[in-house]
Design a protein around this nucleic acid. Sequence first.
DNA 1: ACTCGAATGTTTACGATGCTCACATTACAT
DNA 2: ATGTAATGTGAGCATCGTAAACATTCGAGT
Lengths: 199, 199
Amino acid sequence: MYAMPASKTTYHHGDLRAACVSAAMELLEESGETALSLRAVARRAGVSPAAPYRHYADREALVSAVAAVGYRELAERLAAAHPSPSTTEQLTSVAVAYVQFALERPALFRMMFGEPCDRDNDERIAATAAVTLYLREIVVRTFPQADTEALATAIWALVHGLAFLHLEGKLDSSDPSAVANRVTATIQALMTATSLAKL
Amino acid sequence: MYAMPASKTTYHHGDLRAACVSAAMELLEESGETALSLRAVARRAGVSPAAPYRHYADREALVSAVAAVGYRELAERLAAAHPSPSTTEQLTSVAVAYVQFALERPALFRMMFGEPCDRDNDERIAATAAVTLYLREIVVRTFPQADTEALATAIWALVHGLAFLHLEGKLDSSDPSAVANRVTATIQALMTATSLAKL
DNA sequence: ACTCGAATGTTTACGATGCTCACATTACAT
DNA sequence: ATGTAATGTGAGCATCGTAAACATTCGAGT
């Protein structure tokens, strides 16, 4: 994918910028977030500890870049679950995908959401906007007469919260299929709760 | 509250264990989570860098202790909003309190939920159990005929997600009253969505 | 083709951190 | 009173983020 003479040891790397996020992503998946240091990234990219600073202002900038990739991959994952859901059932399958993503790549997910970071980072803003939009469209199709804005955030919050509670061990996440069942049951419960509420 | 001769400089601190969590909590509130280092805690407690290790195995153990305090304070905050809600309105006020807690003490909240940590820490387990229980009781009263388990996690997830999305800047949190409105609107939207859904 | 500035990497260095170990001091149980 | 366990100190190690000065290479303009 990247044009790079592979093994020829050149002084200039070729595409350190991209290599850094790749390395960072690998470290993240292999050894968790504590393993993600700029120095480790540099080592893995076969470059001196200071080199990454030519491409990222500081550690946080790199983290933002990684998070941005994470957002894109999350979006793909959701789309793979269902490109344009319009029933609660389809919506549920997307929700399950969301939670599964979080559980399969916990370190990445936490980088994306758990840390205080550049809210101003363009990549991040663009990437999250995509997720937001996707969600809003779902809501419009599934609940055409509802308050789109409010319901979209409600659903995002619900699913996001489910992901986090599983991640944090508040909800058992040892068995993936059990998780899927719980997610669907949870959504189901909410959907039927209205009629039972004491207002 | 703690028996301690205040200013007399004794070799032994008196209650370093407690002093550490206090210092840690202060650092957290004053300067954010990056400021929370074991060394800084030791400094603030007026003690050598190695001293805290007599009471906490490592940084994570201290963090867990701080988080446990956070859980207790969160529980108090929720109870203050309403000791035993039994209508959706009262439930909503508790939800608002939850989100406000997160926004007023973001660093603490992130320590409590955003980091991977001792799931086995007894203090933490006990503290979260209290929150869980409180929530479950709310659900039983408010939705007596619903699937308690599922609905309780649904509501927790929803509120927790709302808190995190605000924290992360996904939802604007500059104006506290606007946040309160959004939270109520969000819950409201969910409560009325069922009847509009395409099943 | 040549030159020279801009981009990109390297080296070295500083201060801070988590944590360990050997040692000092104190409290308490006998 | 005495000795052992609890608690605090000091020095030290590896790692980290980051900055500054220097080296190498790329590419644009002649």
